[in-house]
Computed example of a mutant assay.
Amino acid sequence: MTPLSEQELHQLAMNIVGKELEEQGFEFLAVNSKPKKDPQFVALKNKKLHFVVVRAITYPVNPVEYDQKLMKTVYDHAVKYKARTYFAGVGLANSRDYDMPVHHEDDYVVNYAGLIEVKE
């Protein structure tokens, strides 16, 4: 059984967040699918700019906890563009056994609480 690579986990998280953004009426201006090249999404909604940082988080790490320093950097950058800043942590786990890596052959469980707005 081949575990998903870091890039594949990231792509999975990007797809989950991207679908949610589309459903909420966001218009994508830029999409960066490279892990740790932030923000992953620059989007427009109601004529307002939004920066979204996406992270694939594997069990047992809590997907709503984020790197404060990183998000402060992204926030400071967003302020220059009058943009709002969000963190989207997508928890991913093997559905058969949470302690096993996510594999190509197994189903997975998603723990995603939605966009978390980062303010100063």
Rank of each mutant, 00 (worst) to 15 (best):
E65N: 14
K37Q: 11
P63S: 07
L44C: 08
M14V: 08
V54I: 00
Y66L: 10
Y59S: 09
V61S: 13
H50M: 05
V52L: 04
D38N: 15
Y66S: 08
P35L: 10
Q40R: 06
P35C: 04
Y59T: 14
F41A: 07
N62H: 11
I57C: 04
I16E: 12
N46R: 11
F51M: 01
A13N: 13
G25A: 06
P35W: 13
E23A: 14
K45L: 07
L21P: 02
S33K: 08
M14W: 05
I57Q: 01
P60M: 07
K47E: 15
K47V: 13
Q40P: 08
L21E: 03
L21V: 04
L49Y: 00
Y66Q: 05
A43K: 05
M14F: 10
G25Q: 05
K47N: 15
P60K: 13
N15G: 10
Y66E: 09
V52E: 03
E27F: 09
F41M: 02
N32H: 02
P60C: 06
L21C: 06
A43Q: 03
V42G: 01
Q24V: 02
A13K: 11
E65Q: 13
P60I: 13
K37D: 13
V61W: 10
F41H: 03
Q40N: 15
L44P: 01
P63C: 07
K34L: 09
K36A: 09
A43D: 01
K48V: 05
G18S: 04
L21D: 03
K34E: 15
Q40H: 14
